[in-house]
Simulated assay, not measured.
Amino acid sequence: MIVRIMGEGQVELADSHFTELNKLDNELLAEMENGDGPGFRRTLNALLETVRSVGTPLPDASLEPSELILPSPDATLEEVRKMLSDDGLIPG
């Protein structure tokens, strides 16, 4: 799956990583619902760092369609809330 982190670029992720990413996504969703700003920031950064560390970066010149778009590391709680679906940021 091709994933874009807003403001950074794209990475390719194997499906095998989505269990770990969904766990972080569920934590992020709970922190947002509870208004836990520090927890939200910590978990968003952990989610993005996991995507960066397990994904394979695509060249900047690559124009692959992104199947998933994640917020930038400095996104606000409200900005992320607007990006959410019923499943959170990551489907599944």
Rank of each mutant, 00 (worst) to 15 (best):
I2W: 14
V3F: 04
V3L: 08
I5N: 03
I5V: 11
I5R: 04
I5M: 12
M6H: 15
M6Q: 15
M6F: 04
G7W: 11
E8S: 10
E8M: 05
G9F: 11
G9D: 05
G9N: 08
G9Q: 12
Q10G: 05
Q10A: 04
Q10I: 00
V11Q: 15
V11A: 15
E12V: 04
E12T: 06
E12M: 14
E12S: 12
L13K: 05
L13S: 09
A14F: 03
A14Y: 07
A14V: 09
D15T: 06
D15E: 09
S16M: 05
H17D: 11
F18P: 11
T19N: 06
T19F: 06
T19D: 12
E20H: 05
E20F: 03
E20T: 03
L21W: 08
K23S: 06
K23Y: 11
K23Q: 09
L24K: 05
N26I: 13
N26G: 15
N26L: 11
N26W: 04
E27G: 03
E27Q: 08
L28S: 06
L28K: 01
L28M: 15
L29T: 15
A30F: 10
E31L: 06
E31M: 13
E31D: 14
M32A: 10
M32F: 06
N34R: 09
N34T: 14
N34L: 13
N34Q: 13
D36L: 06
D36V: 02
D36H: 10
G37Q: 13
G37Y: 05
G39I: 05
R41L: 04
R42Q: 13
R42F: 12
T43S: 03
T43G: 02
N45A: 12
L47F: 04
L47I: 02
L48P: 00
L48C: 07
E49F: 04
E49V: 10
E49N: 08
V51S: 02
V51L: 04
R52H: 03
S53F: 07
V54E: 12
V54W: 08
G55H: 07
T56Y: 05
T56C: 11
T56W: 02
L58R: 08
L58V: 01
L58D: 00
P59S: 10
P59K: 05
D60K: 09
D60A: 05
A61G: 11
S62P: 02
S62I: 02
S62N: 09
S62A: 15
S62D: 15
L63G: 13
L63M: 09
L63P: 04
P65M: 00
P65E: 13
S66Q: 14
S66C: 10
S66G: 04
S66P: 07
E67W: 07
E67C: 10
L68C: 04
I69M: 04
I69P: 00
L70Y: 00
P71L: 09
P71D: 14
P71T: 12
S72N: 08
S72E: 12
D74P: 08
A75N: 00
A75Q: 00
T76Y: 08
T76F: 07
T76K: 07
E79P: 02
V80F: 06
R81Y: 07
K82P: 00
K82A: 09
L84G: 03
S85W: 06
D86N: 12
D86F: 09
D86W: 07
D87W: 13
D87R: 15
G88L: 05
G88R: 02
L89P: 00
L89M: 12
G92N: 12
